[in-house]
């Protein structure tokens, strides 16, 4: 990250401040945006290094139930269990820490897929226009209009039932990928790209009539070159902003799906913890408060970051 930025700064010195250097300077001045970035970095840190300092290991490992064997079930927050223990006899603090990696996994992968589909559909519709645009946009509208959550529930139910192995282990790196959660991610992505595709299309409509595109056409550039080398870099800033907000959205909706009991039972995402403790919430209020605070904190961070990026990258919108 920093090395890239230094390179950018060097470039900036050579050819005058680049667009990105200017944006970074503007970003740094915005206190809310910096707070957002800090929150996101904390969550990333927890996701990567959490397992080294979490008091108990993450769920499929029987060590997670150690408080249960000690007889510490439904213990309110104290000096030993900072966030208390759940009705299943697990340490809420550890589960919240382990939840960070699942949340980031959901957020990032959903965003990558949705942005990919959005660019594909949006750029085709926006660049070619005419009947292509009409057909693609009607198609997009179907996805935009109908109540996605309802469909997500049905699809998640089907596909999680068909999942064979709960985990796929990547050799060497020793990273275990939860399959049920991955299925949830794909279903979420399929139902979340429509709004972004509309945004990409709008930007393409705006840019395709501009002089630089015309000039490129006159020079005989191929369509793919115009789309990918000329128009796309120009909407990159909007895409970055939308990506940050999509991560926030994905984390929220995954929490909702898990909370309704349609999530992957093998992964303790924050929504999953809330779901498990919903029934005896009257007693274990701490199990309802802390995972929710974690969701709020993370989503708040990504939203702040998105707003900050938007202000920094699209200065026309600001004073």
């Amino acid at each position: 990250m920093t090395s890239k930025k230094e390179q950018k700064n060097k470039n900036a010195k050579r050819r005058g401040a680049s667009q990105w250097a200017v944006a970074w300077r503007r970003f740094k001045r915005n206190r809310a945006a910096v707070v957002g970035l800090a929150i996101v970095l904390v969550v990333v840190f927890l996701a990567v290094f959490g397992r080294f300092f979490a008091p108990y290991p993450s769920r499929p490992d029987p060590g997670a139930f150690e408080p249960f064997y000690k007889g510490d079930v439904r213990v309110p927050p104290n000096s030993e269990y900072w966030f208390g223990t759940s009705g299943l006899g697990t340490d809420i603090l550890s589960e919240v820490i382990h939840g960070a990696k699942y949340s980031l996994y959901v957020g990032v992968i959903v965003t990558v897929i949705t942005i990919g589909i959005a660019i594909l559909v949006g750029s085709t519709a926006g660049y070619f226009g005419g009947w292509v645009d009409n057909v693609l946009m009607r198609f997009t509208e179907v996805f935009l209009v109908f109540p996605a959550l309802l469909f997500i529930l049905v699809f998640v139910r089907i596909f999680t039932l068909t999942a064979q192995d709960p985990f796929l282990t990547i050799p060497l790196l020793n990273i275990r990928i939860p399959m049920g959660l991955t299925i949830v991610i794909f279903v979420l992505a399929i139902f979340s790209w429509a709004g972004n595709a509309r945004m990409v299309r709008g930007e393409f409509l705006r840019l395709r009539e501009r002089e630089f595109v015309e000039a490129e056409k006159a020079l005989g550039a191929s369509q793919s070159r115009i789309i990918f080398r000329h128009i796309l870099p120009n909407i990159l800033s909007s895409i970055i902003v939308v990506a940050s907000l999509t991560i926030a959205y994905a984390i929220l909706i995954e929490a909702a799906v898990s909370f309704l009991g349609f999530g992957d039972p093998n992964t303790t995402t924050w929504g999953q913890i809330l779901q498990e403790n919903f029934a005896d919430m009257r007693i274990v209020w701490w199990a309802a408060i802390f995972p929710g605070l974690a969701i709020l904190f993370t989503v708040f961070g990504f939203n702040l970051l998105g707003d900050g990026l938007s202000d920094a990258l699209n200065p026309r919108l600001r004073d």
Partner: peptide
């Protein structure tokens, strides 16, 4: 308002109930 956008609906419900 940013808090409102970032909050899981159901969680706010849980807190209010508690």
């Amino acid at each position: 308002s940013l808090f409102g956008v970032s909050m899981p609906t159901f969680w706010l419900g849980l807190i209010l109930i508690i």
